[in-house]
């Protein structure tokens, strides 16, 4: 029981992001509306981002901006005083890529809606089938 409680306390961050990832993945698989699929994809990306950010955390450390006043400049910075900056850098760019993929995905959804008049996956597939019988290979 003690060991389980220890596991929960030290791994809770991973499990929360895993739960969020499961929500996103489930939405991507089962939702029939394309915009809801895109929202699921975004939740999945957010889960990955949160996981990386939580990996960068260090107990008792502060944000990765060095103290650089007159008094603080006297001694060199120590790695244990600042949290790991690398996940923050990677996720900063990942957030931007997530926004870019969201924009392109929404543009595709708009285009699909203009062509088919619906965003429902099953309806779109139903409209595609007769066409592929006519001229398809």
């Amino acid at each position: 029981m003690e060991a389980l409680w220890e596991q929960i306390l030290t791994k809770a961050n991973y499990w929360m992001t895993i739960a969020l990832m499961m929500v996103g993945l489930y939405a991507m698989i089962t939702k029939r509306n394309l915009v809801k699929k895109i929202i699921g994809m975004n939740i999945l990306q957010t889960a990955v981002i949160l996981m990386f950010i939580s990996i960068g955390a260090k107990r008792g450390a502060t944000i990765p901006i060095l103290k650089h006043g007159d008094a603080a400049a006297a001694h060199a910075p120590r790695a244990v005083d600042y949290i790991n900056p690398l996940p923050h850098v990677l996720m900063l760019t990942a957030i931007v890529v997530a926004v870019s993929t969201l924009g392109v995905a929404l543009a595709l959804a708009v285009k699909i809606y203009q062509q088919n008049g619906t965003l429902d996956e099953a309806d779109i597939l139903a409209r595609q089938v007769p066409r592929s019988h006519e001229g398809g290979p």
Binding site: Q7, T10, K11, A12, N13, Y14, W15, I18, S54, I55, G56, A57, K58, R59, G60, A61, P64, L66, A76, P77, R78, A79, V80, D81, Y82, N84, P85, L86, P87
Partner: peptide, 26 residues
């Protein structure tokens, strides 16, 4: 995740490779 380092562990593998160089030298 049971094998992962604990949350906030300063000696986690992710915080030991290049990250100390960045913090101390940047």
């Amino acid at each position: 995740s049971l094998e992962f380092p604990a949350w906030g562990d300063p000696m986690a593998p992710a915080s030991r490779h290049v990250s100390p160089h960045y913090i101390e030298r940047s």
